[in-house]
């Protein structure tokens, strides 16, 4: 399977004269884990907002599974098979864990106001299906026991997992994870690593923006590097780690600290 699920060509996004993303093109292959890295302010989140439809590109085009997305609104993209999480959590704080994830089933269910108001059999049947599917997703991220708690009661790491469960509940072909490792403990990051591998095994393609280089380099098939809105490199993790432009872009920011520490640990233990 080497077909392209997402194809971005010459993407550009301008905010009142400031160019956040400049002429970026890339392909993401079906079933791969594709990471986007870059220093702060490189335009990674803007890129995510373009892909998911929160912004429309100033110029350029995005194709999803071969079809141009044009100005399709985010909820349409979700229906097409795209889901995302947010860098700073955006959970529905007025709902329980399970209800949050049940919202994720919205695009995969259809009963409307009338069926709901009259509580027709179709509504009840679908509601049960929604609950079961959502519960599976909650269980999958290991939160089954806390399903009925208000989402705000969970730890930061727990809330991140709820966001992922909610996104997974939409049955995405392509999952966009915006810094899923930020603010997690080392232990939680390991769990995340396993979870992402699991999701890929189920056939999901994953694009992730991430600062945690250990996670990125360990998990990604390919990495794209952005700097000042421009793509400066793309390749496998080893290629990226040796790329001079990447190292220069990160100069003074210590590009792969975690990785070096890891290498050091390995050397002493062996």
């Amino acid at each position: 399977m080497t077909d392209t699920i997402l194809q971005a060509t010459h993407l550009k996004k301008e905010f009142g004269g400031v160019i956040a993303v400049n002429n970026v093109s890339f392909d993401v292959l079906r079933g791969e884990i594709f990471a986007v890295i870059g220093p702060n302010g490189a335009g990674k989140t803007t890129l995510f907002n373009l892909i998911s439809g929160a912004y429309t590109p100033t110029t350029g085009e995005i194709r999803f599974a071969g079809k141009p997305l044009d100005r399709a609104r985010p909820h349409t993209r979700t229906k097409l098979g795209m889901a995302r999480t947010f860098q700073n959590l955006r959970l529905f704080n007025n709902m329980s864990v399970l209800e949050n994830v049940m919202v994720g089933r919205h695009a995969r269910s259809r009963y409307g106001i009338l069926e709901a108001a009259l509580r027709l059999p179709t509504a009840t049947r679908e509601e049960n299906a929604i609950r079961d599917a959502a519960m599976q997703c909650v269980a999958r991220v290991g939160l089954a026991e806390r399903a009925n708690e208000l989402v705000g009661n969970l730890s930061f790491g727990g809330q991140r997992l709820v966001e992922i469960a909610r996104a997974v509940a939409t049955e995405p072909k392509l999952l966009l994870l915006d810094e899923p490792g930020a603010g997690l403990t080392r232990h939680e990051v390991e769990g995340l690593d396993t979870l992402i591998h699991d999701l890929r095994r189920d056939g999901m393609t994953v694009i992730l923006v991430e600062h945690n280089m250990e996670l990125v380099m360990g998990i990604a098939d390919r990495v794209m590097v952005l700097d000042y809105g421009q793509k400066i490199a793309e390749g496998t993790p080893p290629q990226i780690q040796q790329n001079k432009r990447v190292i220069a872009a990160y100069l003074g920011e210590e590009p792969f600290p975690a990785l070096r520490m890891e290498a050091h640990d390995d050397a002493t233990s062996s």
Binding site: T45, N49, A54, T56, Q87
Partner: peptide, 13 residues
């Protein structure tokens, strides 16, 4: 509205 400040903020920039 498509590019409104509030929208930009809400989108997490």
């Amino acid at each position: 509205i498509k590019l409104g400040k509030s929208q930009v903020e809400e989108a997490g920039l």
